[in-house]
Nucleic acid binder design. Structure first.
Lengths: 156, 156
DNA sequence: TATAATTTAATTGTGTGCAATCTATTTGAC
DNA sequence: GTCAAATAGATTGCACACAATTAAATTATA
C-alpha cells in the first residue's frame, strides 16, 4: 500500500496499461481501415479473409475454412450464404461424406483475385511499418494467440 | 512472373503472411480467453473495459468513454443500458448541457472493482509473456493503430 | 437575436462472433 | 449388423461494431 492507501495492484486495472486493449482497439481499427479499400469489391473484412483462403485452395469444407480462420459454423454459415448470394462462391454437399459442405469459387469469385491484389499493397502502407517489423510483430501476436488458446483449455 | 506464371504479388495474398489476420485472430482469442474469467462478474469483455474506464474516473459522458475505447454511441448506448439494467452504472442527463449523458457507478459497480483485480492477474499469465515484452508489444500495436486511423482519413 | 451550423446521444439496419442446441450422417464398439 | 458416440453443419439467441440517420440541445454567425 502507498500513502494514499491504494494497493500496488491498482496499476493493473488501468486501461492505459492493458495489452488486451491495445490488441482489441487495433483489431477494430484494422477492420475500419480495410472497409473503404474493400468497398470496391463489395466485401466485408471477414468475407475478404474467406475469399483469401479460397483463392489459396478451392473446394474446402466449412470446417477447414473455420480452422484456418478460427471461426465456427455459427459465424461461417451465414457469411458463406451471403457470399453465395453475391455470386462469388458455391456450396454443395460432399457426395462421399454428406455431413460435409464443400465451398468452391464461381468464375466471378476467381476473377476477383486479380482486383484484390491491390488491397494488401494499399494496406501495407496504411500499417506504416516495414516488412521486418510486420514479420516480427506477426509472429509475436501468433505465439501470444496460441498461449491464450491453450489457457482457455486450462480454465475449463 | 515465375515459371508457373504466378505474379510476385502472390505471396501478398497469402493468409499466412497477413499481419492483419494475426491481429484479428488474436483479438478474437483475447475475447474468448477473458470470457470464462469475466463470467464470475457477469461481464462481457467490452463491458469490462467500460467498467475499467469508470473505475478510473466516475461520471464521464458517453462521448468521453467512447473516445477512450474508440467506440461510438451505436455500440455504447445499448451496452450501457445493459450495465444499467445489471445495476452497475447510472445514466443521467447533464443538467448544464442536456445533450450529454453522464455515466456513474452504483455501489455495486464500485464494489465490483475489488473482485475485478483478479482478472488482469489471471490474464497476465494467460498471455504468457513478461512485462517488458507486453510493454513493447503494446506500444508497437498502439503506434500501428494510430497509423491505421490516420490512413482512413486519407482514403476519405 | 433569429437562424444556421455543430454537437451529443439515440435509433435503425447489417454483419459478424460465439455459446448452446439440433439434425443428419458417419464411425466405433460390441 | 446394431446401437451408441462422434462429427459436420445449420439454427437460435445474445452482444457487439459500425455506418447512416434522427432528434434535441447548444454554439456561432450574420
Amino acid at each position: 500500500m502507498d500513502k494514499a492507501g491504494t494497493s500496488n495492484q491498482e496499476s493493473l486495472l488501468k486501461l492505459e496499461n492493458f495489452l488486451c486493449f491495445a490488441i482489441y482497439s487495433t483489431a477494430n481499427a484494422v477492420t475500419r481501415a480495410y472497409q473503404p479499400r474493400l468497398a470496391a469489391l463489395g466485401l466485408t473484412y471477414p468475407q475478404y479473409l474467406v475469399m483469401v483462403v479460397l483463392w489459396e485452395e478451392e473446394n474446402q469444407t466449412v470446417k477447414a475454412i473455420g480452422e484456418k480462420l478460427s471461426l465456427d459454423s455459427g459465424t461461417l454459415t451465414p457469411l458463406l450464404k451471403r457470399l453465395e448470394t453475391a455470386g462469388l462462391i458455391t456450396r454443395r454437399r460432399d457426395t462421399v461424406d454428406e455431413r460435409q459442405v464443400l465451398i468452391g469459387l464461381t468464375a466471378d469469385g476467381r476473377a476477383m483475385r486479380a482486383r484484390a491484389e491491390a488491397v494488401p499493397v494499399a494496406m501495407g502502407k496504411a500499417f506504416g511499418c516495414n516488412m521486418d517489423e510486420a514479420k516480427s510483430l506477426r509472429s509475436e501476436l501468433i505465439s501470444m494467440r496460441d498461449n491464450l488458446v491453450d489457457s482457455i483449455e486450462e480454465v475449463k
